[in-house]
Amino acid sequence: MFLILILFLAGVSLRVPGYLDNNSVNILKNCSLNLVMGAGMLCVLLVGSIDISVAAVMELSAAIAGVLMRDGHIQSIGMMFVVGTLVGAVIGCVTGLLTSYGKVLPIIVTLGMMYVCRALIPMDFILGMNKIARVDLTDAFKDFILVRFLGIPVIAYITVAVVLLFGIFLKYTRIGRRFYAVGSNPEAARMRGVPVNGTKILAHILCGATAGMAGIMRLAEYNAIEKGACSGMEMFVIAACVLGGVSVMGGYGKMIGVVIGAILIATIDSAIPQLFINATMMSEFFKGILILAAILLNVFLRRWAEKRRKMRGNAR
């Protein structure tokens, strides 16, 4: 997987000289949203569920936090993140309850949630018919994205913190390891005393929370949010996870894989306008084809590795 990324970077650097110097920070910034959501999505995928409402949740939480800031209820940056994360977590909780106790298939629940969230945004008590724009936000919040520490934007540090936190949580804590157990074999997990439904709900809460957080990060980055602003993001988050070798059936996947997947997608994203600057049409086409090719290549590589392992096993 790493190989693909390096190959791709090399290819682009050849075409566009100076690409890496200009864009490494940009890539970092672009993949931050994908990474934060990817961490939550990883949890959901691990327990054998899926969430395609993340983009809508992102918009909703950013809209709610933005409205609160516009009306002067919130001033601090920290509170924005708290509100956004909470909104996301609540929606995640509802999704989790429906999928675990309600036994509705996650695709359907989250598809429905997507409709509901998107429809809630233009309601009068949230955004009404307006959108959040620059004048609605405090200066501190707007400048927050520009703050750099050691030459790297603060947002990247937040991303790294979230990723590390999730990585450690999944690998080294007991609750985190339950995710794997529930995903690979729910029956066996139940037998051994793991609260399957509770774990699933927790996974969805985490996913919703990261989506809400990503919404605030996006609001900080672009200073604007409206309904449908993030549509399509959910697909790229899932694609990042799949590229990182996470199994959609549940039970298998590592944080580091998601990191590589997200970086690869961010690279594709930032490289394509550079390569085909005058042709959005070409860029759409290549984005599709590259992601599809990367997913398939990934499968081929894994199959190949398995074959070699088997052959080695036979030889022994």
Partner: peptide, 16 residues
């Protein structure tokens, strides 16, 4: 889901 997600992006790109 994943395969058709990929092909969705691909077909849409082809349209463009």
């Amino acid at each position: 889901m994943i395969v058709t997600l990929g092909t969705m992006l691909f077909y849409r790109g082809l349209c463009y």
